[in-house]
Design a protein around this nucleic acid. Structure first.
Lengths: 136, 136
DNA sequence: TATAATCCCTCTAGCGACTATAGATTCAAG
DNA sequence: CTTGAATCTATAGTCGCTAGAGGGATTATA
């Protein structure tokens, strides 16, 4: 049994965020001390770790609800989990591709060595999209 | 002189977003028609294009205010613009690196071909961070 | 010129995933 | 028993929009 502060330290999830997850129905309301403070079990900690890890991988709160549901039912087929992971993977790849285009452009425009705004590539490029090399 | 709808079409910025930018002080309030509708000049359009492009590159509204200010003063030195671009570039690179780690992990866990949740790598990995290959 | 279709106005509220603040209560250590 | 840290609830704010309600303006056609 540990307090919310300890749970926070052990999982790396901030205290208000834990309470927020409770409100959102991701974690169930834990037992309380006599003075009405939350007291968590190891189980609660595992669940929170699951959530944290999932968030780090970019799953939405909605997705996580589904994944948690699934993880409670080991006998169920897991297509859903795979589909979600696959969708996330696609999304991540698209974002990487987009960011790489941005990287190229940012690099190009910040290579400018003008002194004043009048000749500055950063400003010029921002003003005129046609100066970009690639689509974005 | 064109309406907000036309401005929207020409710049690709949605109408409510244009009004939002006006509220945020990114673009100044344009002239109005007799019936109180916004009427934009070519100048307004260029400013909006600047904003749009900057947003696409990931600059925040706050950053853009600064960049716009700079772009109005061609005689000023442009270190600030370069610094902002450099910071953005750093940020973009960090995000790429992080996403690539996620990609590796998502790929790994979605390669699982179990049928039920009990043996599913997706669920297992989410539950136990130690199963990950890399930090994130 | 009348009317209909489309556009535009303001204002308010909502999104997701938190984060911050205020003011009150409880806990743990000395 | 006192003190200081931790916790409680409730509310509001963050960012960058987006959606909706309930109206007025403009434009194209009859």
């Amino acid at each position: 049994m540990f307090s919310i502060g300890e749970l926070s330290k052990r999982t790396g999830v901030k205290i208000p965020t834990i309470r927020y997850y409770e409100q959102m129905g991701l974690i169930e309301a834990p037992e309380r001390s006599q003075g009405n403070q939350r007291r968590y079990s190891k189980d609660g900690m595992q669940r929170l770790s699951f959530i944290r890890h999932s968030r780090e991988l970019g799953f939405s709160i909605g997705d996580i609800k589904g994944l948690l549901e699934l993880s409670q039912h080991p006998e169920k087929p897991c297509h859903d989990a795979h589909n979600m992971a696959a969708r996330r993977l696609e999304d991540v790849r698209a974002r990487i591709a987009k960011l790489q285009r941005l990287e190229r452009e940012l690099k190009r425009i910040s290579d400018c060595d003008a002194d004043t705004v009048a000749h500055c590539a950063v400003i010029e490029t921002l003003a005129d999209h046609n100066l970009c090399e690639t689509e974005h």
